[in-house]
Nucleic acid binder design. Structure first.
Lengths: 216, 216
DNA sequence: CAACAATTGTGAAATTAATCACGACATTCT
DNA sequence: AGAATGTCGTGATTAATTTCACAATTGTTG
């Protein structure tokens, strides 16, 4: 909606900044420099200043940034003023971990409902979230645009098709499958096995030099 | 230890390629083109060819790549020939999800042991992995260089210090905390709340155009 | 109030990654 | 065998991101 001039790399760091600013605020700090923030979030201070600068001049030279002001600004920018509802598909161990995570605290995101193939799990609550049988997807899931997918890979393609028909626009995919979706749907993949193997590969082939660069 | 000329972006994709090649092999396919692979893993075919080319000429012009040959090559490159042992710290829902995941199948990575603060969980097995109390970290965890950290943020800093003393070299960190570690230790962060919020942000501010670009 | 210290915001440079586009060669077809 | 087709490997280009480095400005101190 806004000026989508903000680089993707910057956009990905915004939630991170937001949470640490929140921490600082709770600690009663009213002022912070890019250097301090850098040490906390492990992002180069020049990168932080550059990131902030895309939104205009948010700080004061020789002083730093006012925590409360910055927080207020990012709250608006990150749409923290209105709650975003999401659905969770697949109530296994990973899915259950999400149900216990309190996204409301910092993120203003709410898991509104969950689905599972297991009839025994249906009609229960976990962490206050109602769980339905997957057969009821079409009747229960209205108005939800974002889903978290924590199901076995074998079911991914089928469920994804149904989600697309329901009109969702974003998927956070924890399945190893690379989903095929229409172009107007955004999929972010988090592949746990790939992440672990990549870490192992880096450790063996990229001896860390002076300053260890931390990725994600 | 090899030529560390391979771009990091390429290195991160290797595990992904490896798994899909494995799938193809199981399906009995003996030949694959960069175009086919591209459709499966959702990475541009030119990028795939470029990635492969860092390792030399692995394919044949006008033909494509021999699946079995490529697999064998990557098996060596990704050190799939020897098992990598890792430890899991924190047997909550997320940790348990890892314990049930079979990393041996494709990755030749084995979770050798797990630790938790809960005494009730100790001395049990989950998915064949022994669970110890966290107090026994120093006595039980020998020779392990990589850990998966799935504990509450509040405990992260303390446990990390102990892990560092134990001589680990890599951490896959699911904690929201940004860990402070010596420069010779590599930390990969996977922050579930950040990932979810970033997805929501992208959906609201980056209307997808023609070709949907898929990130992770 | 002047000197000092701190810190931003940003051009410019450097680095890293993705993409284009095409010559060369292997395979397959007729 | 010759023509047509498919596909790789890569030089060159473009795009994205990070980092350097410093003038400008503010707050602080004596």
């Amino acid at each position: 909606m806004d000026q989508n001039k903000i680089p993707q790399a910057t956009a990905k760091r915004l939630p991170l900044y937001y949470r640490f600013l929140n921490n600082l605020n709770h600690q009663g700090k009213s002022r912070v420099s890019s250097k301090e923030l850098s040490e906390a979030v492990k992002v180069d201070s020049a990168t932080i200043r550059r990131d902030f600068s895309y939104f205009g001049a948010l700080g004061k030279k020789g002083y730093g940034y006012n925590v409360e002001y910055l927080l207020g600004f990012f709250r608006k920018t990150l749409d923290q003023d209105e709650v975003t509802d999401v659905a969770l598909i697949g109530v296994g161990n990973l899915g259950t971990a999400f149900l216990h995570y309190n996204f409301m605290k910092n993120n203003n995101i709410r898991i509104k409902m969950a689905f599972d193939t297991d009839k025994d799990k249906a009609d229960a609550d976990i962490g206050g979230v109602p769980i339905y049988h997957i057969d009821d997807l079409e009747t229960e899931m209205k108005e939800i645009k974002v889903v978290i997918l924590t199901i076995p890979a074998s079911e991914a393609e089928g469920i994804t098709g149904r989600l697309v028909k329901q009109g969702i626009t974003g998927i956070l995919n924890f399945t190893p499958a690379r989903l095929t979706v229409p172009h107007y749907i955004r999929v972010h993949h988090i592949d746990l096995a790939v992440e672990l193997q990549a870490l192992v590969y880096f450790l063996k082939h990229y001896p860390l030099e002076e300053k260890g660069e931390l990725n994600s």
